[in-house]
Amino acid sequence: MTVKIVIGLDGTETGERALIFAKDLASRIEGCELLVAYVIEWSPFTFQTAEENAQRHKRREQEIALANSRIVEPAVASLTQAGFKASGVVRHGDVAETLNKITVAQGGSQIIVGRTSANGISKRLFGSSTQNLVMHADVPVTVVG
């Protein structure tokens, strides 16, 4: 049975450390598969102008392309180079919720994320994505500091 580990990246340097940790972990498990996931923060319940709506599809494609080329593809390439079986995915949505959903849908056995660098009022009010993920995830979560 293959073990699948999901690595949640957010484009910050803690994500790099999460990646290093995942490599280390995967090297100890035989036939371990790695899935690099990047979630673009987005909510279907916001207010937009008609013009923004008309441009939305174009923007979405741009956002996905950017996330792939800047974050996901380089990470997958570095994992593949190191000899791991790796793939990537980019999604829109609430970060914690979506990361968990991707993991469950793909049959991942655990999630590795970096400690988020978000601070200030919003974090105090709503908690960070990492906190939410740790509290609500259906699989074990490892937070790399």
């Binding site: 987005w42 279907p44 102008t49 008609a50 709506n53 939305r56």
Partner: peptide, 24 residues
């Protein structure tokens, strides 16, 4: 959003279209 395909997340949602039309 009960019938929204998660794969389409990031596109204009039904809610957003309704809200935009309503604000007009």
């Amino acid at each position: 959003g009960d019938y929204s395909d998660p794969d389409d997340a990031g596109e204009v949602s039904h809610f957003q279209a309704l809200a935009t039309a309503l604000s007009g």
